[in-house]
Design a protein around this nucleic acid. Sequence first.
DNA 1: CTCAATCTTCAGCTTTCCTTCAGAAATTCA
DNA 2: TGAATTTCTGAAGGAAAGCTGAAGATTGAG
Lengths: 224, 224
Amino acid sequence: MKLLIVEDNLDLLENMTTYLKREGHICETAKDYRQGFDKIMSHSYEVVLIDIMIPHGNGLELLRELKSVRPQTGTIIISAKNSLDDKVNGLELGADDYLTKPFQLPELQARIKAVTRRNQHEGNQTIDVHEISIHTNTREVEINGETVDLTPKEYDLLLYFASNKNFVLSKQTIAEHLWGDYVDHLDNLDFVYQHIKNLRKKLVAAGAKDYIESVYSIGYKFKV
Amino acid sequence: MKLLIVEDNLDLLENMTTYLKREGHICETAKDYRQGFDKIMSHSYEVVLIDIMIPHGNGLELLRELKSVRPQTGTIIISAKNSLDDKVNGLELGADDYLTKPFQLPELQARIKAVTRRNQHEGNQTIDVHEISIHTNTREVEINGETVDLTPKEYDLLLYFASNKNFVLSKQTIAEHLWGDYVDHLDNLDFVYQHIKNLRKKLVAAGAKDYIESVYSIGYKFKV
DNA sequence: CTCAATCTTCAGCTTTCCTTCAGAAATTCA
DNA sequence: TGAATTTCTGAAGGAAAGCTGAAGATTGAG
């Protein structure tokens, strides 16, 4: 699951990301309003966690901006004080949940799950593309009923393609989605080629059509 | 047996958990409505014990939520006052049993057993996976009729696998299920490797196939 | 208290995966 | 056609995850 955490307390931020990454999420971070704003405007996340008290602005304001641009994003407000005002405001502005510091990390994980479950009417956790079935709860992929062995990056890549059928995705976008922040200060995105290649090889070897179309100088399209 | 105790009196909570752990249960705890809510939403327990008077909400409300999400969970209501109203309400809302403070710990243990016995009455109490038979009432495991000696953790692990055949279970999930709260603030899950290794060795030595499949970077799958 | 069984930690090793690099192939455009 | 750019490929090193044995810590029974 792709998350954005807007939080200025760097220790807490560090704790949250390491925990959530171990839970299998992809985490991006922002340390203040400005960074948060840039990220929500340029990327899309499944869930965004926003601390109310952040430098250069107010978390509730950021929440409002987010909801106006991407209303389907799951949102969780984090607040140090258990102020009823903030809670009311947060939920009124469309936050899906509200969490007061200090909190246990598993509690956080539970809320994230709950928020996404609420959004995508739970159940259909399998994505089917003709002969390919992706089981998102177990990260397994089947082709014509046979399971295919994919590495983590290959799986992430396939899932990303399958969730954006017939859209052209730039190499940059793909890299940002799969590697998060890490990619920002990188001039060489060659490794994407490798994973595309490996994924193609494995899918075709397992009997699937090669749905990954290269679009010269633009990127790739998962054409179904 | 995996339990959740929702209780704000910390002394009592401490007493209950130490006693019940010694009786062989895995105990998780919640100190108020909010923590309890998060736990029942994100994990599943065999029995949940709920004090009616808890901070941030009402125990009966929590019971209602629990029953709506996981109706098969065993539930025991704990109340300080022997109020008939609460009792009636609790049982009407689907609680399986009702206990008034103060109570003796062995009594608690007896009720827990009774509740699960009632629930499991219909289901068979032995789980069979090809040559492996798990007798959940006696915690004994047989392979081709021969008893295998498993340590408690090994047994729990095997039972967890056998109850989730063909599902990929992350190391994190496994740890949370077998160790409960304890795992929250741990950065090192190495001990899981040990128990997996020991379980594998014993099962194979006893003549079973190695059903435990490693799934790189994710966890394990009990493939039957 | 002592002993034995079990659980947990630690360090080293193996396996798998990721990233980089250099060069070949393909595409675009003058 | 030929040059520039982009994509593809295989090989190699390093990084990360998994496995194992042994040693320390904990627990429970006698």
